[in-house]
Simulated scan of single mutants.
Amino acid sequence: MRLNGTEDQLATHEYPATSGELIDAYGDARIELQNGSETIGAVLGRLGSETFHSADDVWMTLRGGVGHEAVGRRFYSDRDAPAVGEDGPEQVSF
């Protein structure tokens, strides 16, 4: 996930700041995700009204609030055993 330079602007923003203030200031900035992009305004708008006390608070909220496009293949795990009724590779014990 990349904020394309917006992290510097968030770091110098005056806190505390509400999500509405941040959306007004940076809402159009794009967050680059693994499978696409999303605006800061879309992420913060989805999470409702919050007050942030630092840029780190905003960064952590953005990281937790992005959509599924931020991860690789959805529902994929090379660690889980096949579900009941599924055929899969035999488990190997090391």
Score class of each variant (00 low, 15 high):
residue 61 T to E: 11
residue 55 A to N: 08
residue 68 H to Q: 10
residue 60 M to A: 14
residue 47 L to W: 04
residue 80 D to A: 13
residue 52 F to I: 02
residue 48 G to L: 03
residue 78 D to L: 01
residue 51 T to I: 07
residue 57 D to I: 01
residue 71 V to Q: 12
residue 66 V to A: 00
residue 49 S to A: 14
residue 79 R to Y: 09
residue 55 A to R: 05
residue 57 D to S: 10
residue 65 G to Y: 03
residue 71 V to D: 13
residue 78 D to A: 07
residue 62 L to Q: 06
residue 58 V to F: 05
residue 72 G to Q: 11
residue 65 G to R: 00
residue 79 R to S: 12
residue 50 E to F: 06
residue 57 D to K: 10
residue 73 R to D: 04
residue 75 F to E: 11
residue 47 L to Q: 14
residue 49 S to G: 09
residue 60 M to G: 12
residue 76 Y to M: 03
residue 78 D to S: 13
residue 58 V to S: 06
residue 57 D to G: 09
residue 66 V to W: 00
residue 57 D to H: 13
residue 52 F to E: 02
residue 70 A to T: 01
residue 47 L to M: 14
residue 66 V to L: 00
residue 55 A to P: 09
residue 55 A to K: 04
residue 49 S to D: 14
residue 75 F to N: 14
residue 61 T to Q: 14
residue 57 D to R: 09
residue 74 R to H: 11
residue 53 H to F: 09
residue 55 A to F: 04
residue 52 F to G: 05
residue 60 M to L: 14
residue 76 Y to E: 11
residue 56 D to M: 09
residue 61 T to A: 15
residue 78 D to M: 03
residue 76 Y to D: 11
residue 61 T to N: 13
residue 61 T to F: 04
residue 49 S to L: 05
residue 80 D to V: 02
residue 54 S to M: 08
residue 63 R to V: 10
residue 50 E to M: 12
residue 59 W to Y: 14
residue 80 D to F: 05
residue 60 M to P: 08
residue 75 F to M: 07
residue 63 R to I: 08
residue 65 G to I: 00
residue 64 G to R: 06
residue 57 D to M: 06
residue 72 G to S: 13
residue 53 H to G: 11
residue 52 F to L: 06
residue 70 A to C: 12
residue 52 F to K: 07
residue 59 W to Q: 10
residue 52 F to Q: 04
residue 65 G to A: 03
residue 70 A to Q: 11
residue 64 G to W: 03
residue 66 V to N: 00
residue 62 L to D: 09
residue 50 E to S: 13
residue 75 F to K: 08
residue 69 E to M: 09
residue 59 W to S: 07
residue 67 G to Y: 01
residue 58 V to E: 02
residue 66 V to H: 00
residue 78 D to G: 15
residue 68 H to I: 01
residue 63 R to D: 13
residue 49 S to F: 05
residue 64 G to Y: 04
residue 73 R to A: 04
residue 76 Y to N: 03
residue 66 V to E: 01
residue 80 D to G: 04
residue 67 G to W: 01
residue 67 G to K: 00
residue 48 G to M: 04
residue 80 D to S: 13
residue 62 L to C: 11
residue 68 H to S: 11
residue 64 G to M: 07
residue 53 H to D: 11
residue 49 S to M: 04
residue 73 R to P: 08
residue 73 R to M: 05
residue 51 T to C: 07
residue 63 R to K: 15
residue 47 L to E: 12
